[in-house]
Amino acid sequence: MPDITAGGPAPRSVLVTGANRGIGRAIAERFVAAGDLVATIYRSGDLPGGVFGAIGDVRDSASVDAAFSAIEAEHGPVEVLVANAGITRDQLVLRMTDEEFVDVIDVNLTGAFRVVRRASKGMIRLRRGRIILISSVVGLYGSPGQVNYSASKAGLVGMARSLTRELGGRGITANVVAPGFVETAMTAELPVARQDAYRAAIPLARFALPDEIAAAVQFLASADAGYISGAVIPVDGGLGMGH
């Protein structure tokens, strides 16, 4: 952790949605270790040490606004937003219900919009900010049984690029990180044969560690990435080859 009192970088107000588990937890832990003031919007579960939790639901604008108000009172205006909260409702398209499609879009895509909209108010006033949207390799690569999830994650790319054009003049960047398969509790529950098949399709022949996704996010939030905006950074072991 940098020694902020000895002339190091000032801590920033960082918000990571869904920091209670998986990739979001690893991202939050990285920012905490770097000395930033880290908060999350979440519905339930335990949080990493040093993370301020605001109970909220990205499916509801009033709930998002209330959570932001609590975070701003604690840490000041959000300078780095990581929109990570997401769900899956996998089903073959012929069997997928309207609810299974709409629920995934509402959390993964519209939920990201709600937090971006709220965060952008403070960033515009500050004339600086970093917006990082967590997509997925399947948003560009596709996946059977995930029409809803793939559509939601592809939509984040268009969102980031439109935000880049709309907010770039205010010193705000917007980028996408697109993870591949990651070592999480969700992938651990897959049958061993399916895990082996997935690994066989990945050039690096292994799943990512959550911290490897977090490292890419932290880079995009750093001063070194100040001239990167509208980009999609794949962290997938070569699975998607940028597609």
Rank of each mutant, 00 (worst) to 15 (best):
A67Y: 08
Y42D: 05
A185H: 01
G242S: 10
P48A: 10
I202T: 14
G56Y: 15
A19C: 08
K121F: 04
G169M: 12
I23P: 13
R117A: 07
I23E: 10
A185Q: 13
G56L: 13
D57V: 15
P234K: 09
I172S: 06
L167K: 10
Q195V: 04
G7V: 12
A151C: 14
M123W: 12
S135D: 02
I41K: 10
Q218H: 12
V192G: 10
V16S: 11
G22M: 07
V58N: 11
S44V: 02
I233D: 01
G56R: 12
A231S: 14
L239G: 00
R30K: 11
L126Y: 06
M1C: 14
A19S: 11
R130D: 14
A112C: 10
M123Y: 09
P234W: 02
G56N: 14
R43N: 13
F31P: 07
R194S: 03
D60M: 11
R194F: 07
L37E: 07
G8F: 14
G240Q: 00
P203Y: 08
V176A: 00
A112K: 01
A67N: 12
M159V: 12
M241V: 04
P48L: 01
G158Q: 11
V137N: 04
V115E: 01
Q146T: 00
I41T: 03
E72K: 03
S229F: 03
L133Y: 03
A66P: 05
P9T: 06
V177Y: 00
P2W: 08
A70W: 01
D236N: 06
R199P: 00
G129H: 06
R130P: 12
D46I: 01
G45A: 08
I71P: 03
N175L: 08
D98Q: 15
P2D: 11
L190K: 04
G18P: 11
P191F: 02
T97D: 08
V93H: 07
S63T: 13
A67V: 08
T173A: 11
T184N: 04
M241W: 10
A33Y: 10
A33C: 10
G50L: 00
V82W: 04
V93F: 15
I228M: 03
R12K: 15
G238C: 03
L209M: 13
A151F: 09
A215G: 09
S162F: 04
Q218W: 09
F113Q: 05
A39D: 01
G169L: 14
M96L: 08
I4N: 08
L140M: 15
S13L: 01
V192T: 05
A62R: 08
A73M: 08
A119V: 13
I55G: 13
R89Q: 15
G180C: 10
Y198C: 03
V217C: 05
A85T: 14
M123H: 12
R12H: 01
T88K: 01
V107W: 02
A160W: 08
M159C: 07
E183H: 10
V235N: 09
